[in-house]
Amino acid sequence: MTAGALGLFAAASPAPAQEVRLPVLEAGIGGGGGWLPDYPAAGQNHVQGIGFPYVIYRGEILRSDDQGVRGRVYRSGGVGIDLSLGGAFPSSSSKNDARRGMPDLDWQGEVGPALRLTLWRDPAAPRRVNLELPVRAVFSSDLTSVHYRGVVFSPELAFEQYGLGFPGARLRAGIGPIVATGRLMDYFYRVEPRFVRPDRPAFDAEGGYLGTRLQFSYRVPVTDRLSVVGGGRVENFSGATNSDSPLFRRDWNLSLALGVAFSFYRSEATVASSADPLD
């Protein structure tokens, strides 16, 4: 996801921290679930869950960790360019009143570059405010084929703090608008003539403003191997480009999620992780 910022304070670096060495490679199992809207501006939420194996790799360029999978393409002062990823659960149209009789929404994945600007950093503690500017291509898959669904731009202003409440804990909160191309909007809001019914007229979606998202997450390492994360998201779609779609049902969506991860393998090779625990 994205991150953000509020005031420009140059050359502020965190106070020296005791060096912590972490395994270069970890492997484990994770799982989680949440109460999630079926799609943006959907009128219904459903409980979704997933279990999965995972790998954490703390390399100089490629990293997969508690912040997700990132390609650290460029770093200089308060500016960075990452390869960022995102995704969404599938949604069954048979369980959604607005989409009943229409094709299901498949698993979605997003990938693309993200420019990150650190606008403020506390010189005495590991916390900062970022502006993240990700542009991602969106794909959907039913696990038998993959389809390109357009592009999404979701700039975000975010606050991050490390070590809040518990050693190693990470808090993140961010807010920002979402803009999408017509192809992605069609995936969510288009109604083809063959799916028309008395309360669902035909509709051809357009690219533009999708909504505004406020989200937060809080991760706590319970032990060296076990961690728990909780989070939530509030989205507002007032004034959205496709608010006239019969599939557009609510101006507000709420998401809540909880997850757990357990690492059963940790490499003997380690890497220093103290200069900036937020990176």
Results as ranks from 00 to 15, higher is better:
247 L>C: 03
118 T>V: 14
161 Q>Y: 10
75 R>K: 14
143 L>P: 01
108 Q>V: 02
173 A>L: 12
254 L>C: 04
264 F>G: 11
252 W>E: 09
80 G>S: 15
26 E>T: 11
203 F>S: 00
155 P>R: 02
182 G>R: 04
35 W>C: 04
146 V>Y: 04
114 A>R: 08
261 A>D: 10
124 A>F: 15
154 S>G: 12
16 P>I: 07
63 R>Y: 09
85 L>F: 15
165 G>A: 09
227 S>M: 08
142 D>M: 06
201 P>F: 14
178 I>F: 09
53 P>A: 11
231 G>P: 03
113 P>A: 08
168 G>V: 10
176 G>H: 02
2 T>F: 12
11 A>I: 02
33 G>C: 06
67 Q>E: 11
19 E>A: 12
41 A>D: 03
180 A>T: 09
197 R>E: 12
279 D>I: 04
83 L>V: 08
140 S>R: 01
276 D>A: 10
126 P>Q: 08
240 A>L: 03
199 D>R: 15
50 I>W: 14
213 R>G: 00
122 D>M: 09
261 A>I: 03
236 N>I: 10
267 S>E: 14
110 E>R: 08
200 R>K: 08
10 A>R: 15
159 F>H: 10
159 F>Y: 12
26 E>Q: 13
208 G>E: 06
215 Q>R: 14
168 G>A: 08
215 Q>N: 15
59 G>V: 09
227 S>A: 15
58 R>I: 05
148 Y>D: 12
91 S>Q: 03
257 A>W: 05
89 F>A: 06
138 V>T: 07
163 G>P: 01
77 G>T: 07
167 P>L: 14
38 D>A: 13
42 A>Q: 02
64 S>V: 11
86 G>S: 10
254 L>M: 11
249 R>F: 04
119 L>H: 03
174 G>N: 02
164 L>S: 02
52 F>R: 06
156 E>W: 01
241 T>Q: 11
238 S>P: 03
240 A>K: 01
162 Y>D: 00
50 I>R: 09
187 Y>K: 02
68 G>I: 06
98 A>D: 05
42 A>C: 07
101 G>Q: 07
82 D>R: 11
150 G>K: 02
54 Y>P: 02
87 G>H: 07
268 E>R: 15
6 L>C: 13
16 P>H: 07
170 R>A: 12
271 V>L: 04
171 L>P: 04
175 I>V: 15
254 L>E: 13
149 R>C: 01
53 P>I: 10
230 G>L: 07
145 S>M: 06
256 L>N: 06
106 D>E: 11
55 V>F: 11
15 A>I: 08
239 G>I: 09
7 G>D: 15
34 G>Q: 01
242 N>A: 05
13 S>Q: 15
152 V>Y: 00
60 E>N: 14
186 D>Y: 02
214 L>N: 06
208 G>H: 05
35 W>E: 05
167 P>W: 12
162 Y>R: 03
107 W>A: 02
130 N>K: 08
261 A>N: 10
144 T>G: 11
259 G>D: 05
93 S>L: 07
221 P>V: 08
109 G>V: 12
205 A>P: 01
81 I>L: 11
212 T>Q: 13
247 L>I: 09
228 V>M: 13
112 G>W: 06
260 V>M: 15
177 P>N: 05
150 G>R: 01
